[in-house]
Simulated assay, not measured.
Amino acid sequence: EAKKDSCFEKRKTQMASSSYFLVIALLALASWQTMASDPSPLQDFCVAENSSHVLVNGFVCKDPKDVKAEDFFLAAKLDMPRDTKANKVGSNVTLINVMRIPGLNTLGISLARIDYAPLGENPPHTHPRATEILTVLEGTLYVGFVTSNPDNKFLSKVLNKGDVFVFPEGLVHFQFNPNPYKPAVAIAALSSQNPGAITIANAVFGSKPAISDDVLAKAFQVEKKTVDWLQAQFWADNQN
């Protein structure tokens, strides 16, 4: 009987130890997920020193003694309409990130104004480093995003003036102006000083050098001549 009690206590100890290590692993994973975004500032600010030749994940800090109000300012004139006729997709994205305002360095936020021509769109794309929250200022937008594999669920909504929609970090999303007569305007905030943008069509069919048409024909289950035709198109860049 004493032997049985001893085995039972040993099993309890092993289970408790296993549970402890599982909790530690989960906490480590949660901590890693927390850190897998723009770094949090450890001081009031870290104004980007663009003239530095040191390469880090972000930008080197300017000496605080040399920081001035202009480091946090940009006369972007975001109240002014942008040209939406310069590319085939009929949209113009004006991004205000750390490259334009050095004071954004380490602050984990940026901003964009998006202008849409009638029937214009901001085509399917992703932001590898940011969640986006979008507000419609004028007009109507049809928006949506697709969840990751294996579900690939499509979630969409028609937005009117004043409506807000969120696109989770890294997911493919788009905005389209369904009105054939009136333009639309939106403002987007992004949770990174440098969110990045990967426009799907440009990346797949407009890469330099081109991805092999054998690879893309297999991936999209189409003939190689279809891929060749798509690769020969001019893939417009609407990022300004």
Rank of each mutant, 00 (worst) to 15 (best):
A2Q: 10
C7W: 07
A25H: 08
A30L: 15
S31E: 11
Q33I: 13
S40W: 05
D44N: 11
V47M: 05
E49G: 00
S52N: 09
H53M: 12
L55K: 14
L55H: 12
V56Q: 14
G58Q: 04
G58W: 11
F59Q: 02
C61Q: 11
V67W: 05
K68F: 09
K68P: 01
F73P: 00
L78T: 12
M80S: 12
R82T: 10
T84W: 01
N87A: 02
V89R: 05
T94C: 09
L95Y: 04
V98R: 08
M99I: 08
R100I: 05
L104S: 04
L104Y: 05
R113E: 11
R113C: 02
H127I: 02
P128C: 05
A130N: 03
T140L: 06
V143T: 06
N149P: 10
D151I: 14
V158H: 09
V158W: 09
G162I: 01
F165Y: 09
N177V: 03
P178E: 09
P195F: 04
A197D: 00
I200Q: 10
F205W: 02
I211P: 05
D214L: 12
L216Y: 02
A219M: 14
D228K: 15
D228N: 14
F234K: 14
N238R: 00
Q239H: 09
